[in-house]
């Protein structure tokens, strides 16, 4: 166990180093990118650009620049954004709870509904409900999240906002949980649904396929031969072993979303989360912010994959942690 944790921590460092170097190189090797010119505003004089370059250390050699950026990010924690000239770390820190709220809520919805749909489809195999549910799931996967979000906004914020159905929907935005839990819930309700639709569809299909495959395993036949009820066979045997794939997919998807992958949902619903931050920094080529969000995402993803391995070993005793 200790060896496992140490190894994963070392691994995380390697990943973070590699990914920061990669982002750094891509950024500075992209032709036409000159952050100093961007920061200097319209028609800057050569002197202004030079002074900006000096101020931000852009006139140093690449390795030194990389080192400086890492120092500002991790040690003095006072990395300054090229765009807004504010400190980056507090910005990311304040965006994190927004993203976490969005993703946690959506994850709960998608776990519950995908399991219900997947199990229902597998149990009802051979009836009309199975293909019906699977087509529904396919539609869920195919609907683009930004389009769905806009439609939801259109309906709840404008077209039907005055009807009794949606009059409770507050304007777009985010209220912290600690400030007003009810408002927090109301504002996030539709973003949660919108974000989870894709995952419900995808996970339901994966789970159904897994359940059906597991059902033909010899040990399921043994379970039936023991005289167990179909319900017990389904929940204690078939579903239990099928969850192994489900869990490993979930861990990584969850981490990607927490790491800023819910960008489109955040943009559409105006939620000031990490995704929105990433989106804005990408449009303005703001390297410090990009770098920080990338590091933040990589951190969550390596953390999640370590957690997935732990859960995996718990679910499947044949797996040894090493």
């Amino acid at each position: 166990m200790a060896a496992f944790i140490i190894r994963r921590l070392l691994w995380m460092l390697v990943v973070l180093f590699a990914i920061t170097v990669l982002v750094f190189l891509i950024f500075f090797a992209t032709p036409g990118v000159d952050p100093a010119r961007q920061m200097a505003g319209r028609n800057p004089s050569a002197a202004t650009i030079r002074s900006i370059k000096h101020e931000f250390g852009l006139d140093r050699s690449l390795p030194v620049r990389y080192g400086l950026m890492m120092k500002h990010m991790f040690i003095s924690r006072d990395l300054i954004s090229y765009g807004s000239h504010t400190r980056v770390i507090p910005e990311v820190v304040s965006a994190t709870p927004v993203t976490l709220s969005l993703v946690f809520g959506a994850a709960v919805i998608w776990i519950v509904f995908s399991i219900l749909t997947g199990v229902a489809a597998a149990v009802l195999r051979g009836t009309i409900f199975d293909p019906f549910l699977m087509i529904l799931a396919l539609i869920g996967i195919s609907v683009p999240v930004f389009w769905l979000g806009e439609v939801v906004n259109l309906v709840t914020q404008s077209r039907l906002h005055d009807s009794f159905l949606f009059s409770w929907v507050p304007p777009l935005g985010y209220t912290p949980l600690t400030q007003d839990p009810f408002m927090w819930f109301k504002q996030l309700f539709f973003p949660w649904l919108t974000l989870s639709v894709l995952y419900i569809g995808f996970y339901a299909r994966v789970l159904r396929a897994n359940l059906i495959e597991t059902d033909s395993e010899d040990y399921i036949r043994t379970a039936r031969a023991k005289g167990l009820s179909e319900r017990r066979v389904l929940f204690r045997h078939t579903l239990r072993t099928s969850m192994i794939t489900f869990v490993s997919l979930f861990g990584l998807d969850f981490a990607v979303l927490v790491g800023g992958g819910a960008l489109l949902t955040e943009v559409v619903f105006g939620l000031p989360g990490v995704g929105l931050l990433t989106y804005n920094s990408l449009t303005s080529l703001d390297l410090p912010v990009i770098m920080t969000t990338v590091v933040y995402a990589a951190f969550f993803i390596t953390l999640a994959s370590a957690l997935v391995d732990l859960v995996y070993a718990w679910l499947d005793p044949r797996v040894r942690l090493a």
Partner: peptide
């Protein structure tokens, strides 16, 4: 309870988890 059955492949006939 009254009729029990054992199968060919003992490697796959028990639930691994």
């Amino acid at each position: 309870e009254e009729i029990a059955m054992i199968f060919q492949d003992p490697m796959t006939s028990l639930n691994p988890v």
